[in-house]
Amino acid sequence: MASIILENACVEFPIYNARGRSIRRNLMARVGGSVAADGDVVSVNALKNVNLRLTNGDRLGLLGHNGAGKSTLLRVLSGAYEPSSGSAEIQGAVSSLLDITMGMDPEMSGAENIVLRGAIIGMTIPEARERIPEIAEFAEIGDFLDLPMRTYSSGMNMRLAFAISTAIRPDILLMDELISVGDAAFASKARQRVQELIASAGILVLASHDPKSLLEYCTRGIVMEHGQIAFDGPIEEAIVRHGMEIPEMKKETSAVSGA
């Protein structure tokens, strides 16, 4: 059972300049009285009072211009950032396909990386070892499996990263744009894998600039503006509200209808 509840969630980054981060500066401020005491901590409000409730079956599309807070919101939803004020309650196993190469080491072999990355995303080590052949086969890396990843082509790199990241079935799936990897043949295989993941996930949150994929996978849409939710409603209206046109498309039957 997956659920996400954000209540008045704010994310405010303190930007310490070099002086703000030094102990000397801090001591001076204490010793020498309050001369411009907080003059050098600037903060950036990445999210302001976001209220959001998601439950099983929700397919949420995130829209907004660059810098509107989409990525920050995704990171709050993944649990990496806890709101600086307000609260975020996240229940269920989260898989964020934001940076699929996270934690992979170029000096280690493909097989070692499968175990390492697998353990980080929640597999046990025996389980990760057992799945090496299957993951390697999906990634089509063949004999390179036991060579260090620095010898891989960038395509192989991405294919392996993708194969590992999508090897588990999360309750909550977070994506920043649909992942597209590899050549045409692999791309269609990857697309199918993503669709399966989406279908089995309780909650999907997809940040995208592409109205076509938003319409295909999402039912509800949020438009972010300056760190706030400016619109929350059906995805079609969100797309229009964001100033994009709804593309002509045949309703694909592969589109997902909730888990």
Binding site: R75, S78, G79, A80, I90, V94, D99, G103, I120
Partner: peptide
């Protein structure tokens, strides 16, 4: 940072 910024580890 790579891990902490992205996952709730």
């Amino acid at each position: 940072g790579v891990y902490l910024r992205q996952e709730a580890m």
